[in-house]
Simulated assay, not measured.
Amino acid sequence: MLELSPPKQKLLDWLEDYIDRYHAVPSYGEMAAALGYKSKDTIRFHLTDLRAAGYVAWKEGSVKSLVICKPRSRTIPILGVIAAGGLVETFPDSEIDEFVDISTLPHFVGKRRTQMQEYFALRVKGDSMIGAAIADGDVVILRKTSEPKSIQNGEIVAARFETQTTLKHLFWSGDQIILQPANPSYPVIEKRAEDVAIEGIFVGLVRGLV
């Protein structure tokens, strides 16, 4: 398929999110209002080009029959490496150039494109979480959180302290955080809660990525 201009890409993305959310097709007027166009003709122009390029289709005279012919993949960035053993640096300053497609994972079916901004991925280094079926080389998917206190005991998190990160089960103990490995060969880590930043909560993984 052809590369789209920014206005056409914006319309296509908005349409896909709208249809995902409401399971219906918006009117020309709704599209124009949402994207800031004064004229419905601008929407018709972009839709005609999208249809010609094979991105959408509809029955003549019925925009409500519009379908997305090739839904775009849901990708999230792989931000770096996380330790499942010792500690390693993560979230590099260099430009992100690696992404993972998570559109087929059950957790993400039906989620809108805007919701994907809550998620990121990290490559696992080490085997301290092997008991939780997380192996060296896996790519773990994590959800950002702004409320660490809402995390339940036993959940797997990406915990950051002293500029480094590790993947562990989290347990609360007063003003302490206990980071428990899923491999008896590794020690438990105990830190003051105020010294630990929870970067994300584990929601799934992808295995076999090169």
Rank of each mutant, 00 (worst) to 15 (best):
G86E: 12
R44S: 15
I156W: 01
E194I: 10
K111F: 11
G36M: 15
E147A: 14
S103T: 00
V140C: 04
K59Q: 13
F91D: 14
K125I: 11
A83K: 00
F108I: 09
M116V: 07
K70A: 13
D101K: 08
D97F: 13
L47V: 09
L87S: 09
L167R: 05
A24N: 09
Q152E: 12
G137T: 02
K38L: 10
G154F: 13
A57R: 10
G36R: 07
Y28H: 06
A133F: 05
A158S: 07
S146N: 11
V25K: 03
I156D: 00
W172Q: 00
Y22V: 08
L50N: 02
V210I: 11
G110W: 01
M31S: 13
K191V: 00
L12H: 02
G36C: 09
M1P: 02
F45P: 02
G204F: 04
I201W: 04
T104E: 14
T166F: 01
M31G: 08
E98V: 00
E118W: 00
I177N: 01
G174P: 03
A135I: 09
D136Y: 02
L79M: 06
K70I: 12
A135K: 04
E98I: 00
V139F: 00
E98L: 10
F202Q: 02
D17A: 12
R113A: 15
G208P: 01
G54P: 10
S27D: 07
S185K: 08
I141T: 00
G174R: 14
G86P: 05
E60C: 00
A182N: 05
V63W: 13
G54F: 09
A159E: 15
D17I: 11
I82F: 10
I82M: 01
T90R: 13
V196K: 03
G29I: 03
V140Y: 11
I178R: 11
V140S: 06
F108G: 12
E162C: 05
G85M: 10
S94P: 04
Y28L: 15
G200D: 08
P106T: 06
S150P: 00
D138W: 06
E190Q: 15
N183P: 14
E155C: 05
T75F: 02
P187H: 10
E155H: 03
I76Y: 01
K125V: 09
V109T: 10
L122S: 02
R74H: 15
V140M: 01
P7S: 13
T75V: 14
P187L: 03
S39L: 01
V81W: 09
D97K: 09
V196I: 11
V203Q: 02
L79K: 14
D127F: 02
T42M: 03
G85K: 04
K8F: 14
V88A: 05
G208M: 10
L170I: 08
V56F: 04
E194Q: 13
G154V: 05
S146I: 08
V81D: 15
L170C: 05
A159V: 09
L79S: 04
Y28F: 14
F99I: 02
S65D: 15
A52S: 11
L209C: 05
Y55G: 02
S150Y: 07
D101F: 04
A159T: 06
E199D: 14
I156G: 10
I151K: 15
S27H: 11
D138H: 10
M129R: 03
K191N: 07
D101S: 05
I177Y: 04
D41P: 01
G154M: 10
A57Y: 13
K125E: 13
V81T: 15
L4D: 00
